[in-house]
Design a protein around this nucleic acid. Structure first.
Length: 811
RNA sequence: GCCAAGGUGGUGAAAUUGGUAUACACGCUACGUUCAGAACGUAGUCCUAGCAAUAGGAUGGGGGUUCAAAUCCCCCCCCUGGCACCA
C-alpha cells in the first residue's frame, strides 16, 4: 500500500512556525508553575557537520522538555556554543582566516541543523563563549578569583616541541610526541596562571552528598579528587643535623618500617651528598643521572624490577626509634607526598619488591583476618589491608584507624610532624600559549607588578592578528601584537605590558549555565532574582568525557561564586546523567579518517526529522553506546508512517464511543509514555507506541481518544503530531495542549490471567478477579482439571498466592 | 594492579526491580502483490525431541539462599571505559 506519510512536505512548515513564534521560551519568575531547568551540554561548533551524538542526545531530551511543558511545568531548555579552542585555531592557521569568522560560520551551520531536527530550544537565551559580551564575565570571574587569592602565578612545565618551537596542549601530544610533526615533546618551565582549586577539594568531595548524580559520576569525581590525610614526620639523619621530612598515609604500619626512600630528583640528595661515604655518593650521583634519562613511561613499565642506590646514610624513625637505611629510588615520585617515603615491605607490595632486591628485612605489624601473624615471604603474602596492630609500642592492640589517630596525637605532641590533606587533584593550570581563547585581564607593570584590568575596561577584547601560530619563544601569538601588548598601568599610569596568555577552553563552559538564566544582562553575570529562580539546574545531561574535569571546574567556579554571595546555592546541578556514544557501523568510533561518519542532514532529508529522532531514541538504552545501523532505521520509518495512516483512518471511522479495550489501553499507554520519558527510558517509550499500534490499529476510537493518540506522540514525533493535530481541524499547537491526566480506574483491571506454577514450573493459567481472596483462588486452582493432573493427587505442602501476579503450589 | 559499568536469541535489546525469560525492532524463511527492484501484506522464527498437543533444557561458568533467581550472596571467566609505582 502506498504510504501517505510525507514528512518532507510538512516538517519545515512547522519548524518555521515554532521558531518564529518562540513558543518554547522558559518564562522568567513564573511562580504559578514548577520550574524545570533542563541542561544539555552545549556543543563545540566544529567545521564538520553536527555529530550523530548531538542528534541523539538532543532528540532524547527534547522529548523530555516537550513532555514536561505539556505537564504544565515552566521548562527552560537552552542552547549555546562552546566555541573557543584548538580545532578552530588550527583550521584558522591552515586556511589563513580569522577564527572569529570561521566560528560564526560554524555556529550558523550548527544552529540550522538543530532547527532542522525541530528541537525546542529556547533560542532567546543563546550564548556564545567567544562573544565579548559573554567573555567579559568570564574575565570578571577570573578577576574575582585573583582578588581572593585563588589565581596565582607559578612556574609550571608546558609541553614544548623543540622542532616546531611551539608550546602544545595536552590534546596535541600523542604518546609523548607532537601530533603535527612526530617529534618527541619536552617539558619546559614557564610562568603560568594557576587556579587554586585544591582549596575547594574537600568541599567538592563532601558536597557530592547534596546532589543526586548517578552513582558512577559521584565515584569518578571522588576518585579524581582523591583526598587523603597524610602524616609528615621528621626523621633525623644519623650523624648530622639534617632532617628528612618523610610522608605516609599509613602511620599504623610505622613499626614495620625497615628503610627510607627518596625520589632521585629530590634536592635533599644533593644536600646530603657531602655526608655520604665517597663510594656511595658516586653511586647515587650515577643513579640520579640515569633515572633522569628515563621517561615516565619507562619508569612505570619497569615497575616490576625495582632499581635504586644506597646512600650509605641512616636515619632514625622518630616513631619506632629504629635505625633505617636511606636509599634513592625512582619508584618514589618527587611530586607525591613529600617525595620521601618510609618503606614497609610487609604491608606494601612495591616496598616488598624493593626490600627483596636489596636484602632488607621484612617486619609484619598488622594482623590479617583471624589474628593471622604469619611471616611475609612472598609478594603475594604482602598484607595491604587494615587490621589489628601489634609489635608497635603505643599503638598495640588498636585497629588501623584508631592507631592512625593515636599516631597523629603522638607526632603532634612530640613536635616531630603533622597531618596534611593532599589530593590527587592538582591546582588548575589556567594559562594557554594560544590565540583563540579569552585574554587574561592582567597588566604587568615594572613598578606595581601584576595589576588587574579594572572592571569598567572589560571585556578585554581579543585583537585580530595576522599570525595565529604560537611564537617561537613559546609565548602566545598575542605577544607579537606590540600595539596591543604595550599599554599603561591602570594603577600608576606608567608603561606596562599586557598578559599575553589566554584562558583554556574550560573557562567559558565553567559558568554558561548561569548565563542562560539572564543572557542579556549588561550589569552582572546574571540578576540575583533570575539566578535564584532558575538555579540549580534540575537535570544536566552530558558525555562521560566531561565527568572529571568540566564537572569539577564548573562546580568549583559555582561554589566560589556561592561563597562570594553571587550564586544562590552550594551546588550548580541537582542531577547529572551520562549518555552513551553513537558508534559507526560495526562498532568503531565514527571518524572522518574511517569514512564511517553519518550526517544528520542526510538522514533528515531521506527519512525526515521525526523518524531520525525516534530512531535515535529507539536504538538502545540511554546510558549505553549504540551502533549505527542503516537497516534498523527502516523499521522505525515503517512504524511512523503506519501510525500516521492509522490516526487518519481512525479519524475517518470515528464513532461516539471507543472500543473499551482500546480506550483502556490508550490510558495505559499515556501513563507508560510519561513514566518512560521521565525515567529516561527512551527506547522502551518507542516500543510502547509500537506495541499499542500492533494491538489496536484496527480499533474504533471516539474524537477525544483520537486526540490522545496524537498527543501521546507529541514529545517524540513532534512534527507528525502537529501535522495530524491540524489535519483533524485544530488551529492551535498540539505542543500547547495539556498532557492528559489518566483516570486511575482505567489502569485497574477487574479480571486478569495469572500463571499457576506447580513446584515452580508454569503448568497453566487461571482467570481471576482482582478482588478474589486467596481462599477463592485456591478453590479455583483445585477445581481446574488440567492443573489437577499435574498434582498427581499429592499432598499440598504450600500454597503461595502473590496478589495479581502468580500462584505457586508446592506438592 | 585499582575503580566503574557490563555479559540474555543470528543482531539491537525488553523483563512492572525476586514472580509467565526473550516484549518491541532488525535480520532470516515461506507465501502473496509487483515487468523488475524498492516498498508493502500474511505466516513462521531461543534450543532439543515430536505431524501435533506436549515434554525437557536455556539469561558467561560453578556453587548457594528461596515456594520462586537474568535479578540476591560466594568463587571463577570474558568484554568495555577510566586511573595507575598516589606509599
Amino acid at each position: 500500500m502506498e504510504r501517505t506519510y510525507k514528512p518532507q512536505e510538512f516538517e519545515k512548515k512547522w519548524q518555521d512556525k515554532w521558531f518564529s513564534e518562540l513558543s518554547y521560551e522558559g518564562k522568567d519568575l513564573d511562580e504559578t508553575r514548577k520550574k524545570y531547568y533542563l541542561l544539555v551540554e552545549f556543543p563545540y561548533p566544529s567545521g564538520d557537520s553536527m555529530h550523530m551524538g548531538h542528534t541523539r542526545n538532543y532528540s532524547m531530551f527534547d522529548a523530555v522538555a516537550r513532555l514536561r511543558r505539556m505537564k504544565g511545568e515552566n521548562v527552560m531548555f537552552p542552547m549555546g556554543w562552546d566555541a573557543f579552542g584548538l580545532p578552530t585555531e588550527n583550521y584558522a592557521i591552515k586556511v589563513k582566516r580569522a577564527p572569529q569568522d570561521i566560528t560564526r560560520e560554524n555556529i550558523d551551520t550548527f544552529r540550522r541543523q538543530l532547527k532542522s531536527l525541530g528541537l525546542s530550544f529556547d533560542w532567546s537565551r543563546e550564548v556564545n563563549t567567544t562573544d565579548p559580551e559573554y567573555y567579559k564575565w568570564t574575565q570578571w570571574i577570573f578577576l574575582k578569583l585573583y582578588e581572593k587569592g585563588l589565581a596565582y602565578k607559578a612556574k609550571k612545565p608546558i609541553n614544548w616541541c623543540p622542532k616546531c618551537k611551539v608550546g602544545c596542549a595536552n590534546e596535541e601530544v600523542v604518546d609523548g610526541k607532537h601530533e603535527r610533526c612526530g617529534t618527541e615533546v619536552e617539558q619546559k618551565d614557564m610562568d603560568q596562571w594557576v587556579l587554586r582549586i585544591t582549596e575547594y577539594a574537600d568541599k567538592l568531595d563532601k558536597d557530592l552528598d547534596l546532589t543526586d548524580y548517578v552513582e558512577s559520576v559521584k565515584t569518578r569525581q571522588r576518585n579524581w579528587i582523591d583526598a587523603k590525610t597524610w602524616y609528615d614526620v621528621k626523621y633525623q639523619v644519623e650523624g648530622t643535623d639534617e632532617y628528612m621530612q618523610v610522608s605516609t598515609t599509613r602511620p599504623d604500619t610505622q613499626f614495620g618500617a625497615t628503610f627510607v626512600v627518596v625520589a632521585p630528583e629530590h634536592p635533599i640528595l644533593q644536600e646530603l651528598m657531602g655526608k655520604m661515604p665517597e663510594s656511595n655518593s658516586e653511586e647515587v650521583q650515577k643513579y640520579i643521572e640515569s633515572s633522569k634519562k628515563k621517561s615516565d613511561l619507562e619508569r612505570v613499565s619497569e615497575s616490576k624490577n625495582k632499581t635504586g642506590a644506597f646512600t650509605g646514610l641512616y636515619c632514625l624513625n622518630s616513631i619506632s626509634g629504629e635505625r633505617l637505611p636511606i636509599y634513592a629510588a625512582d619508584f618514589v615520585l618527587a611530586n607525591i607526598g613529600t617525595g620521601m617515603v618510609v618503606g614497609v615491605p610487609a604491608h606494601d607490595k612495591r616496598d616488598f619488591d624493593f626490600a627483596q632486591k636489596f636484602n632488607i628485612p621484612v617486619i609484619r605489624v598488622i594482623e590479617g583476618p583471624d589474628g593471622d601473624r604469619s611471616e611475609i615471604k612472598e609478594a603475594k603474602d604482602v598484607y595491604e589491608d587494615e587490621g589489628t596492630v601489634y609489635g608497635s609500642g603505643f599503638m598495640n592492640g588498636l585497629g588501623s584507624e584508631e592507631a592512625r589517630v593515636k599516631a597523629a596525637e603522638y607526632i603532634k605532641e612530640k613536635g616531630i610532624g603533622d597531618t596534611v590533606r593532599r589530593y590527587h587533584l592538582q591546582d588548575w593550570i589556567f594559562s594557554r600559549q594560544h590565540y583563540w581563547g579569552e585574554p587574561i585581564p592582567i597588566v604587568h607593570c615594572p613598578v606595581c607588578g601584576d595589576v588587574a584590568v579594572p572592571e569598567d575596561q572589560l571585556p578585554l577584547e581579543l585583537p585580530y592578528v595576522k599570525e595565529y601560530e604560537p611564537s617561537v619563544t613559546g609565548e602566545s601569538p598575542l605577544a607579537a601584537m606590540t600595539d596591543w601588548v604595550n599599554t599603561k598601568c591602570p594603577k600608576c599610569g606608567g608603561d606596562a605590558k599586557r598578559e599575553t596568555d589566554t584562558m583554556p577552553n574550560w573557562a567559558g563552559s565553567s559558568w554558561y549555565f548561569i548565563r542562560y538564566t539572564d543572557p542579556h544582562n549588561t550589569k552582572a553575570i546574571a540578576s540575583p532574582e533570575l539566578m535564584k529562580y532558575w538555579m540549580p539546574v534540575d537535570l544536566y545531561e552530558g558525555g562521560q568525557e566531561h565527568v572529571n574535569l568540566h564537572l569539577l571546574y564548573s562546580r568549583f567556579w559555582y561554589k566560589f561564586l556561592y561563597d562570594q554571595g553571587i550564586a544562590p546555592s552550594p551546588e550548580p546541578y541537582h542531577k547529572r546523567t551520562i549518555h552513551g556514544m553513537v558508534l559507526g557501523e560495526g562498532g568503531a568510533k565514527m571518524s572522518k579518517s574511517l569514512g564511517n561518519v553519518i550526517s544528520p542532514d542526510d538522514l533528515i532529508s531521506k527519512y525526515g526529522a521525526d523518524v531520525t529522532r525516534a530512531y535515535m531514541m529507539f536504538m538502545g538504552p540511554y546510558e549505553g553506546d549504540v551502533v549505527w545501523s542503516a537497516e534498523t532505521i527502516n523499521g522505525v520509518k515503517r512504524f511512523v508512517s503506519k501510525y500516521y495512516d492509522f490516526v487518519l483512518n481512525a479519524w475517518n471511522n470515528k464513532q461516539g464511543e471507543s472500543d473499551e479495550a482500546a480506550h483502556k489501553a490508550l490510558a495505559k499507554l499515556l501513563k507508560r509514555e510519561e513514566d518512560n520519558l521521565l525515567s529516561l527510558k527512551f527506547n522502551t517509550s518507542i516500543s510502547a507506541l509500537m506495541e499499542f499500534y500492533n494491538e489496536y490499529s484496527k480499533s474504533i476510537f471516539n474524537q477525544e481518544d483520537i486526540e490522545k493518540l496524537i498527543i501521546v506522540i507529541a514529545p517524540s514525533l513532534p512534527h507528525m503530531s502537529e501535522e495530524l493535530w491540524s489535519l483533524i481541524g485544530h488551529k492551535d499547537s498540539v505542543h500547547n495542549q495539556q498532557w492528559p491526566n489518566v483516570d486511575e480506574k482505567l489502569l485497574q483491571e477487574e479480571t486478569i490471567e495469572v500463571p499457576v506454577q506447580i513446584n515452580g514450573k508454569v503448568r497453566g493459567r487461571i482467570t481471576i478477579s482482582t478482588s478474589d481472596t486467596e481462599n477463592l483462588i485456591r478453590e479455583k486452582v483445585l477445581s481446574d482439571q488440567a492443573l489437577l493432573g499435574y498434582l498427581n493427587g499429592g499432598e499440598i505442602r504450600k500454597f503461595i498466592y502473590v496478589p495479581n501476579k502468580i500462584v505457586n503450589v508446592v506438592v
